[in-house]
Design a protein around this nucleic acid. Structure first.
Lengths: 139, 139
DNA sequence: TGTTAATGTAACTATATCAGTTACATTAAA
DNA sequence: TTTAATGTAACTGATATAGTTACATTAACA
């Protein structure tokens, strides 16, 4: 299961955009309903991915990429651990004496890579701006 | 990350098919290179999903569905916990006083469901038989 | 210039999942 | 009757997760 860091990160980015960046981690935490340190931890990941910028002691968060260019895939990769971004765990160290043990990983690679790619294709085609517009249309 | 139970389950089904079911959990464990109880635990999930059948005290595992009809999606759902099969965790209990907190889950639902569907579409289009054939072609 | 307040991050906790391990009751084949 | 395999429970150690507390660093501003 993909961690809720992902949905929280999108929440954060939507709030930044809708408030022109003039909000604190404390305010975001109030909307997400969690601890401000949790928000700052995720914001650290978004910063390292060069999606946002902020400075200690200064209120305000800047979007480095325009909101309409920030895709779900950008966010997913920013908050996904480990860095390899593999969706499927493959069992390793199988028995090389056995035909199946010797070839299972290679045989699985293509279809599983394709499954992951198709999921990522959808994430890449969805922007945080779409979410902002959807939220606005509901209010 | 999707648990390696999934890739192990495919490994198990491939071995059952390639050996006409005349193998023990001990033998499968030797190929996977793990403990036989791990294999039996996963086989229990495959049984409950009506993909295989076996009986205590009796050597041999029967495929209930023909191998060419067992898709990766069948296997994925058989070994995936929890039963809801949700790929993305959504943060809950957000602040209803806030426009974003009030609407974030509904706004995320459609694109995330679509991402998951596209992944599952690939899993549904891949059968364990394809893996068996791929393995055979490599040996 | 000193106070105030926000950020960035580390350390720790509780919880959950995971894979591996041991053990054993149940079952049936030989 | 012996032997051996299955099904399952209980436990372990490792890892990920989200929440919590604490605090050094930084800058705004009175």
């Amino acid at each position: 299961m993909i961690s809720s860091r992902f949905s929280v990160a999108i929440h954060i980015l939507a709030l930044i955009d809708m408030n022109d960046g003039k909000i604190t981690s404390e305010y975001i935490a109030g909307s997400v309903n969690t601890n401000a340190a949790v928000i700052r931890r995720i914001m650290g990941m978004l910063s390292r991915a060069n999606l946002i910028a902020s400075r200690p002691g200064v209120v305000g968060i800047k979007l480095i990429k325009p909101i309409k260019e920030i895709t779900f895939l950008d966010v997913y990769r920013a908050v996904d651990l480990p860095e390899e971004h593999e969706l499927f765990a493959l069992h390793q160290d199988t028995n090389l004496q056995c035909e199946v043990g010797r070839n299972i990983q290679s045989a699985l690679e293509k279809p599983l890579r394709e499954a992951q790619s198709q999921m990522e294709r959808v994430l890449e085609g969805t922007t945080v701006e779409q979410i902002v517009q959807d939220i606005r249309s509901r209010s």
